[in-house]
Every structure is written in C-alpha cells, then in structure tokens.
C-alpha cells in the first residue's frame, strides 16, 4: 500500500471504532425496533416467530385514548418545563451577569442540580413531596397553611417543578455564556444612547443572544420528551395516567402489557416527533450558515 493511500485512509481508520459502536449500539436496535413495530410480538417469541401485522400497531395506537392521554401529558410536560426553564434560566443569567464578590461560588451552586443523577433527583423530590414527612408539607403546616397533596392531585405540577429545579441550570449556563460573549462596547453604546437596564435587555441583549437561546430551547425540548427516570421514581406515571409520559408508557407496554410490537410502534411515533424537532434545529443552524455565506459573498463581490 502506498503512503498516499494510507494517508487518505487514516481518518477513516480513526473513525472506525466509533462507527462500529454506533452501528451495534444505536443503528442495530433502531432497525430492530422499526422491524418489530410491524409485528404482533410477544416477549415469549423470537422476532422471527412473531406474526407480521402490517400497520395494525400504528393504527391501533392512533385510536387509543390512553395513548392520546399519554401524548398530551408529554406535550404539556415538555412545553411547560421548557418555557419555564427558559424564563428562569435566562432571567437568572441576566441577573448574575456581573462581577460581584462570591459570584463564582454562586454560579457553581446553581449548576449543581444538573450534576445529580436523575434517579437520585427523583428520590430527593419524592421524599420532599411526601404527604406527612416531606419538608414541604411540614413547613406549610408549621406556618398554618395546611398541606398540599403534591404527588396526588397536583402530580404533574410537582413533577414539572422537580424537572425545572434540575434543568434550569443547563439553560442558565448557556445563557450566561452567550451573555458574556456579547460585544461589551455595543452595550456601552446602548447605555450612552439612553437605554435603561430593561431596554438594554429587550433591545440589545436578548436579540443578540437569540441564536444561542433558540438552539438551547430545542435541545431542552428534545430532552424533555425523553424524560423517564425522575417521573418513574416519583410517581410511576400515576395517579391514574396523570403523569404517564410517553417514555414511561412505552416501557410499561413492553414489560407489563407484554406487547412488544405496540411498544415499538409507540417508540417510533416519539422518534418521528423528535426527528422533526431535530430537523428544525439543524435547519435553523443551516439557515444561519447560509446567511453568513451570503454576507461574505456580498462583501467579496463589492470588494469592500
């Protein structure tokens, strides 16, 4: 083999292990799942023995009110956590973007929740929400406000609060990074131009942070659709179906109801939803690139 051939192959050789791992751990199960979703498949059968069922699983799900309920819960959960997290995360970033004594310690503290394993987060919150020994109800009762049925009547809200606690830091650090990379002199110019603190935020800071915020928002949305552990530990989807998000329903359909084909079809529906979000995100990035390229071409053309 000549040197030039080796040189040309080098990058592919380095990439090969990762490609192999991806193929085994990601691509193979994915194809397996798509294949299985078209079959009436029971866990006691191998996939070869399962009967081909065409689109029957998909059609059944399409008309299944429980699946609808689950989908609505997921959408409610995802959109409320992401919008609240964006609001609080960006707000905190705007508030803490200044040099004060002890600010680095404070920032580290804010990021801590993100570093805790989701199962642990679920357990922590489950104990805090406990109707009699939980810290929330004990505090409420001690100041005479009466207890709240956190994980019963208000289960979805409680789950949303826990997720906000864990994931707001993610948005906070990205928003803070975006803020700190803003051109300082443009902000100074705005101050001289007469912008108040709020006006600087609305007219200068937020518009300039927008590209980062949009990508952050989409990333969080994709993540929120896949949430499982925290809710599993806290409520197991109950009471009733009130917190049964799709990921949880998929796992229950496969294990409790022993309907692997239906579970696979449901997972595919979720996959399609997430793919759409991903495509939106990629399209947004592409759009930005095209914009930049157009400006470069324009400048080149005018020779300026």
């Amino acid at each position: 083999m000549s040197y030039s051939t080796i040189n040309r192959l080098t990058p592919y050789i380095f990439l090969a292990p990762a490609v192999v791992v991806m193929a085994i751990a990601l691509l193979y199960p994915l194809i397996y799942m798509v294949f299985g979703s078209f079959r009436a498949w029971d866990p006691s059968q191998t996939i070869g023995e399962a009967e081909f069922a065409g689109f029957a699983n998909y059609i059944a799900l399409w008309h299944d009110p429980n699946f609808h309920e689950s989908l609505i819960v997921t959408l409610k959960f995802a959109f409320s956590v992401v919008s609240l997290e964006m609001l609080i995360g960006v707000g905190l970033a705007l508030l803490l973007d200044r040099s004060l004594r002890g600010m680095s310690v404070l920032r580290t503290l804010f990021i801590l929740p993100m570093m805790i394993a989701p199962v642990v987060v679920g357990l922590i919150w489950r104990y805090m929400y406990h109707p009699s020994i939980g810290i929330f109800n004990q505090t409420l009762e001690s100041i005479g406000l009466g207890s709240i049925d956190w994980l019963g009547k208000h289960a979805l809200m409680s789950v949303i609060i826990a997720d906000i606690w864990q994931w707001t830091p993610f948005i906070f650090i990205l928003a803070l990074a975006a803020l700190q990379s803003l051109p300082r002199s443009a902000l100074e110019a705005a101050r001289i131009d007469g912008a108040s603190g709020w006006q600087q935020i609305i007219y200068i800071k937020l518009p300039l942070m927008m590209p980062v915020l949009i990508v952050t928002c989409l990333l969080r949305l994709i993540d929120a659709f896949k949430v499982l552990e925290v809710i599993l530990v806290m409520t197991e989807g109950g009471p009733g179906l009130s917190t049964e998000i799709l990921a949880l329903r998929i796992s229950r359909t496969a294990t409790e109801f022993r309907e692997l084909g239906v579970a696979a079809a449901m997972a595919n529906y979720l996959l399609i939803l997430l793919l759409m979000l991903t495509v939106v995100m990629l399209a947004y990035n592409k759009l930005q690139e095209i914009k930049e390229a157009r400006i470069k071409a324009l400048i080149k053309e005018e020779g300026i």
Binding site: P183, S185, A186, E188, A189, R191, I192, A195, S196, L208
Partner: peptide, 20 residues
Amino acid sequence: LEPKDRDLAMVFQDYALYPH
C-alpha cells in the same frame, strides 16, 4: 449621573454598532 443623563454621544474604536 448615568451615561444616558449626560447628554453625550460617543464614537467607539471598534464602532460598537448593534449587529442585529
């Protein structure tokens, strides 16, 4: 006083235009 209350206009070295 805040810069906005001083009735000044300023031109910066790096232009400091609002990019958006």
